[in-house]
Simulated assay, not measured.
Amino acid sequence: MSMAIHTRALRKRYGSHTALHGLDLAVQPGSVFGLIGPNGAGKTTTLRLLLDIIRPTSGEVTVLGQTPREGGAALRRRIGYVPGELRLEGRVKGGALLRHLAEVSGPVQPGTIEHLAERLSLDLTRPVRTLSKGNKQKLGLVQAFMHRPALLILDEPTSGLDPLVQREVLMMLREAREAGQTVLLSSHVLSEVEQAANDVAVLAAGRIVAEGPVSSLRIASVRRIRATLTATTPEAIGAALDAAPGAEDVDIASASPDGLVRVSATARGEIDPVIRALTTGSIRDLTVEEPDLEESVLELYARNEVAQ
């Protein structure tokens, strides 16, 4: 099965600045693929290359089995796109604009525009120029989804939306995946990617620093530990944790009047030595937490900067 999106050694330079350094990307059909990274990482540049808005300095790119340049307008009609900076102006009403765009993008089933507008709480009777940033974003989302394209390319799609509408957009992404559509989602909102994407690539300074299933970005070798102990002293548990490989950021609360000692620590690497150290006392309560996706990505950025 051919990839919905495939790039090889894709590079883009703007004068002396290199925005992308040999990007290799493969997006499976029928998946939601997350592209995450800070501002300036190369996310928007990548999306514009896929749409033939700009052209690569070197390398190869195919979208739905065609090169963007050769596919032209026919290929773009198979794609729904929401840009990161959506500029919509004019006296035309939202509904009229969407009906006009439907004639350009391809067949739109009757009632689809109204159904999507209702889901996103969008008033189609208002002139575009009077809409807030969030409502213009909703308009952009309706035009991207309304013709049920084979591929959705969404650059920060929930920007300016309130939490309830954001949740509805995530539901629409899941429905698109279930319908066999492919979604490329660019975002710096890590919780969105975590909820919606099957796979993810992390961009930093124009390079992919990690990719794979969302779960693989979690730093499995790092755990946060909180414990409540009895039958020990702060000094005893402190000495045990000092001797335990991988125990970091240890914080021990003084014994309370009821004889409890409260401990928090980070276990890096094998967790067993840290847990064994805690058995210096009797464990009354124990919590072990994985870092969230944001912590994982920040550490990946840090690793990339050190590597450079």
Rank of each mutant, 00 (worst) to 15 (best):
T7I: 05
L10G: 02
R11F: 10
R13E: 13
S16P: 01
H17L: 15
A19C: 01
A19W: 02
L23K: 05
Q28P: 00
V32T: 03
L35P: 00
T45K: 00
L47M: 04
R48K: 08
I53M: 01
R55N: 03
T57M: 02
G59C: 03
T62A: 07
L64A: 03
Q66R: 11
T67N: 13
P68A: 10
A73G: 11
A74C: 10
G80R: 05
Y81K: 12
Y81E: 10
V82K: 10
E85L: 09
E85G: 10
R87W: 12
G90Q: 05
V92A: 12
K93S: 08
G106W: 05
P107Y: 14
V108W: 05
V108F: 08
Q109P: 10
Q109H: 11
Q109Y: 08
T112G: 08
E114V: 07
A117W: 03
R119V: 11
S121I: 08
S121F: 05
V128R: 04
T130L: 09
N135H: 03
N135P: 00
K136P: 01
K136R: 09
L141W: 02
V142W: 02
H147D: 04
A150Y: 03
A150S: 06
L151Y: 03
E156S: 08
S159C: 11
G160W: 08
L161Q: 12
P163H: 09
V165I: 15
V165A: 09
A176T: 10
S186Y: 01
S186W: 00
L190N: 00
E194S: 04
V202K: 02
A205G: 06
V209K: 02
V214I: 03
L217P: 05
R226P: 06
G238K: 15
L241A: 15
D242C: 12
G246R: 15
G246I: 14
A247S: 10
I252V: 13
A253C: 13
R262T: 08
V263N: 02
S264Y: 07
E270W: 08
D272R: 14
R276S: 12
A277E: 08
I283G: 12
T287K: 09
V288R: 11
D292T: 04
D292W: 13
L293P: 06
E295C: 07
L300R: 12
E305I: 12
V306L: 11
Q308P: 04
